[in-house]
Design a protein around this nucleic acid. Structure first.
Lengths: 347, 347
DNA sequence: CTGAAAGCGCTTACAG
DNA sequence: CTGAAAGCGCTTACAG
């Protein structure tokens, strides 16, 4: 069974210094002579000393724990976000806790409060739709736990955020279809209460108007960001007497749903129907035809979020430095043209 | 900013009891009179008391932290595993930490050791390929941290495991193709050093032999469990003078790759080519045609893993009870027949 | 059934 | 630049 783990006392003894000095070295504080520092470092290495985070957390107030709070269980978006967060956290010695909250449930405040208080969380990353949850933000504000919002509906003056310009991205995608000659472009919306839903629809409308067109409610369907949620809408659109020649689905999973419905009807793609998605998750390459979509740099966004958050935490500990200002980063998106779009076939 | 959080002392004062008594109530220990227990519970509720996990962890030795250690970043399998773990952990008051280890990197031991010692992890869930990593298990054994293995290559007498019978599942899938009349069935293997790779290939061979056939190396390709890794093999198989009438890809992502290659060649599916995958991840419904595959109940496996682990932890704390025996659960798999398989077309 | 004391491994003021 | 003391909020023996 486990040997006794070395403590700061063992290190101090081995280095011939006080525990306070060891603590100083551990925390990279100033005022330790180079010589002493080296002796301590050597002792730490020899003993394979690893500070006990619980003890650090109890008196100090850092836990080295960052939580990702989200409400999109198992989705590919969440997976990619976590990959980005993980990379950055690991580099900086933080650990990542994942907390899915049942967004519809009423226990949201309580769960977040428990998390924060019991675990002494250092910081939190919020993704949609939790990124816009006032109750969650209130708990975090009251507890004084810093957080960063990924893709919030509106930027707040009190918390930093990372996003892409979803409206512009949706417009780019729509313009791509318009440039191909499509004039009747169906649209499938995302989940209500989700920031991206309105922004993407807004970008679609912007682009249509640029071409002197008005969105037609007849070819706009409600979806929910899942594959299944797009099926009914796609069927209705393709059953119209005058069906659209292209369909813009508000994310890639819904676009995959549109493709399935089209295949099922024996349409030949993309000549009979062009389809675009949004996000450029891995799925978009795996369906047939591969999706034209707009790439959100999800991992980079997550990485940037973690970076901003950790930077904030570092400054918090050094009360003599000026805290970094609230920042709202907008990362570049990119139109990715694959084989699911083409000029409309002549009728 | 945050009010001072109530501590056990505040609760004791409010309830007119000692802190030890409060501690007893918190930990559900015996020897507290019903009356006292109730007074304490009431005080805890009124003060919204939430025990500080760092303090509990420092002296006691539970952190309420369970880590999932894996080596398959961002894959859908990992996402579903985590959903299952999360559900169970939440119910039991545990939090889930995710630690992706760069499986090829050499720092595996060190990272796991850090995790365990710094964070006082209560337990660990291992999934493939880490589930078979001797170095990781050694660190955990030495540290005395309980762990459970999901789908290990071989069951060990010292750690519980959860799995499905992959060999039988692969045989079932192959028999399904054989029953349709396919006799030339290509196979794309998974990543080397991954337990599932050999088991799935083994099941394929078992089924062929049941029909008096021998596997032909000419139609067996090496893949790596990713979409891209299947493309080259699929192209080679379909370029043969006598191409297979069906292809068994060792997981769903690779099967999606096979479908893409087939579409690209203008084959009509499934009449020109039947394709099967393995796992039944969400993707399998989203491609065209939807994949015939075998369902691993990934979430249930994760749930069972967390359950077994947490049960173990509970017994550890009560030294007077007999620890639960090492268990190796085999969950049922299920053949899922969709539209990617059909009898071979006449030639 | 209940409680007073000591201590977990660190960090925070406070002195030198 | 360095260190001795106190304390974070709990739990573990140990007494009653």
């Amino acid at each position: 069974m486990a040997e006794r783990k070395p403590t700061i006392i063992d290190v101090a003894r081995a280095a011939g210094a006080s525990i306070k000095t060891v603590s100083r070295v551990m925390n990279n504080e100033r005022y330790v002579s180079a010589e002493t520092r080296e002796r301590v470092m050597k002792a730490m290495a020899e003993l394979q000393f690893q500070p006990n985070r619980s003890a650090q957390s109890l008196k100090g107030d850092r836990s080295y724990l960052i939580a990702h709070i989200y409400g999109d269980p198992g989705g590919p978006y969440t997976g990619e976000i976590q990959m980005g967060l993980l990379n950055r956290c690991r580099q900086q010695g933080y650990h990542l806790l994942i907390e899915e909250i049942d967004y519809s449930g009423g226990d949201v405040q309580e769960r977040v409060s428990k998390l924060v208080h019991q675990l002494n969380l250092d910081g939190v990353v919020l993704t949609a739709p939790v990124t816009d949850n006032e109750a969650v933000m209130q708990v975090l504000d009251e507890a004084g736990v810093p957080y960063i919002r990924v893709t919030p509906a509106t930027e707040s003056p009190s918390a930093s955020s990372v996003r892409i310009d979803e409206r512009a991205a949706a417009a780019d995608l729509t313009l791509h279809l318009l440039a191909f000659g499509h004039r009747r472009i169906g649209f499938i919306k995302g989940r209500a209460n989700h920031a991206g839903t309105d922004l993407r629809y807004g970008g679609y409308c912007d682009a249509l108007r640029e071409y002197g067109l008005e969105p037609e409610p007849e070819i706009v369907e409600q979806g929910g960001f899942t594959y299944r949620s797009a099926l009914a809408g796609a069927r209705r659109l393709l059953s119209l007497a005058d069906p659209p020649t292209a369909i813009f689905a508000s994310n890639d999973e819904m676009a995959a749903g549109v493709l399935s419905v089209a295949h099922d009807r024996g349409l030949s793609l993309p000549s009979d129907l062009s389809v675009v998605g949004f996000d450029d998750i891995q799925l978009s390459e795996m369906v047939w035809p591969p999706l034209t979509t707009v790439r959100q740099p999800i991992q980079e966004m997550a990485d940037a979020a973690a970076e901003v958050l950790i930077d904030l935490l570092a400054h918090r500990r050094q009360s003599d430095t000026v805290p970094p200002p609230i920042a709202h980063r907008v990362l570049p998106h990119k139109l990715v043209i694959r084989r699911s779009t083409a000029p409309p076939a002549k009728r």
